[in-house]
């Protein structure tokens, strides 16, 4: 679905990503992990066409992503960015309804309203739906923004650190929602810092280091003692508790 070939991204002459070739497996939940500054968010935003690329190419269903019209791409690809400056005086429902804009240009039908209500319910936002965003906590606002991305119903959903600011209950909610997206036939890529979540929830893991692809594959092959210790330059242990893998740093 999304293929990255020999990608390089540079800011002010400094290469953030170098010679990167990888793909997001269709219909799978892919976790993108790596230390700070590895280029995880840059890779995600380049795939979402928010960051210009220096060289190489990104293909969406075989077509260069830069050749696809912005409005058409928005119907098929949605991206969550944590740094989005949320306009304060909007209700949660207003914000989530923006997710339907690529499909409706501001004139939602009954089916669109249903999708908006489903997004509200799926992220446990029903009790806040009519509250203004500036009356909510950071985590609640973040879920509202995620709701907007879900309401966009893209075939590919890119999520940049969606678990930051969330308590463990809502982090679980977001991962459950990500899995539901996969069950609906979508492809999801998610930047994660919590390696245990990556190990237990993702179908595929891409590990980045110093702007380059370090390793990729099934979580059990990528998230190993040796692989993670090399990735983070620190000793990392992978334990198993009741069939679940837990990543520990010592």
């Amino acid at each position: 679905m999304i293929e990255v070939r020999n990608l390089a991204v540079a800011f002010d002459g400094t290469k953030i990503l170098r010679n990167m070739t990888l793909s997001l497996p269709k219909g799978k939940l892919t976790g993108i992990v790596g230390p700070n500054g590895a280029g995880k968010s840059t890779l995600l935003t380049a795939m979402g066409r928010l960051t210009p690329i220096h060289s190489g190419e990104i293909l969406f269903d075989g077509f260069p992503i830069g050749d696809i019209a912005t409005a058409s791409l928005a119907k098929r690809l949605s991206i969550f960015r944590q740094s989005t400056p949320i306009t304060p005086r909007l209700s949660v429902r207003d914000l989530i309804s923006f997710g339907r804009y690529p499909h409706t240009q501001g004139r939602p039908t009954g089916a669109d309203l249903l999708i908006i209500e489903q997004a509200i319910a799926r992220l446990d936002l029903s009790e806040f739906a009519d509250r203004y965003l500036d009356t909510l906590s950071g985590g609640q606002r973040q879920r509202a923004l995620l709701g907007m991305v879900l309401a966009q119903t893209g075939d590919v959903v890119l999520l940049d650190e969606p678990l930051n600011n969330l308590d463990i209950t809502h982090a679980r909610t977001v991962m459950r929602v990500a899995r539901e997206e996969i069950e609906m036939g979508r492809t999801v890529a998610i930047v994660l810092h919590d390696l245990s979540i990556a190990a237990n929830h993702c179908d595929h893991v891409i590990a980045l280091k110093d702007g380059q692809l370090h390793s990729s594959g099934k979580p059990e092959y990528v998230l190993t003692n040796e692989g993670l210790s090399d990735l983070y330059n620190t000793k990392v242990d992978v334990a198993e508790i009741e069939g679940r893998r837990v990543i520990l740093t010592v």
């Binding site: 935003t45 912005t70 119907k75 240009q105 501001g106």
Partner: peptide, 21 residues
């Protein structure tokens, strides 16, 4: 274009993500 303005108020990245040039 009031809806488009609402979306542009979210900033460049969110607006582009929602299909606004």
């Amino acid at each position: 274009i009031h809806k488009r303005l609402d979306i542009m108020a979210l900033g460049r990245d969110a607006a582009k993500g929602l299909g606004v040039d």
